[in-house]
Design a protein around this nucleic acid. Sequence first.
DNA 1: TTTAAATTTGTAATTATTACATTTTTATTA
DNA 2: TAATAAAAATGTAATAATTACAAATTTAAA
Lengths: 131, 131
Amino acid sequence: MEHGIKPSYPRIKILEYLITKRSHPTVDEIYSNLVKEIPTLSKTTVYNTLNLLISANIVRVVASEENETRYDADVTSHGHFKCEKCGAIYDFRIDVGALKTDDLKNFKIKEKNVYYRGICEECLDNIENKI
Amino acid sequence: MEHGIKPSYPRIKILEYLITKRSHPTVDEIYSNLVKEIPTLSKTTVYNTLNLLISANIVRVVASEENETRYDADVTSHGHFKCEKCGAIYDFRIDVGALKTDDLKNFKIKEKNVYYRGICEECLDNIENKI
DNA sequence: TTTAAATTTGTAATTATTACATTTTTATTA
DNA sequence: TAATAAAAATGTAATAATTACAAATTTAAA
């Protein structure tokens, strides 16, 4: 694994899960799914691994208003949209460089997050169908 | 109180606290400070009241990557900057209308949040002073 | 003043996360 | 290969945030 992290089996599987299922899962989701494959997996290992991947900048936490920590293996700049109906989190391309503010001119900005809430296309369609 | 919420004493005090101290406090901060004035105050009331104010759109939660829910009585559009050193959250003016993305063209966007992380001016000054 | 409704309170339950000691695995070296 | 040391994973317990809910209190209405 990159960034000097030893590629143990659980670590590979956890990162793999994040990369393939791009659903911004919670610890619970990751654990519940992987424990089928790795019966000895413990939730603490999932926490440890995610925190390790975060400090290595391979994974980041999705900023939100909820008390659910969700993880994302895509650390390139993009926005997150959370659907209020189905709870899904969508990625979207956004140019955070276009965001300008004079208020922070003497601040050191390390990270810019953009987070939207609303109703996704699919749920809008479902609502319409039911009326 | 506006929005059809009955202005009880705890409710007024909680909203007043949020409006005057614009520090985006946690429930704990609000409770700890107000209990001095209102000795019978319970933390459940703080939670209840904040959730009530949120559903009335008088208060909003600050989106972040941390597991700390912080509240803001300013519901007009602005960004939040969190300092990694001192933990303070700063408001800043930002034109979220300038954010455009084609990826969400069939989505209903209800709320746009902008959240930055980094080091604030004050902490940058302190670091420089110590070197 | 009585009654009903709304609000607040306190305790218990739930959930997410971290702390930490123990066990297991992996890598190293004799 | 066996012994040893280091790293990683595990499981349990502790902590903290939040919600559920029933009881008590306050407020408003009749």
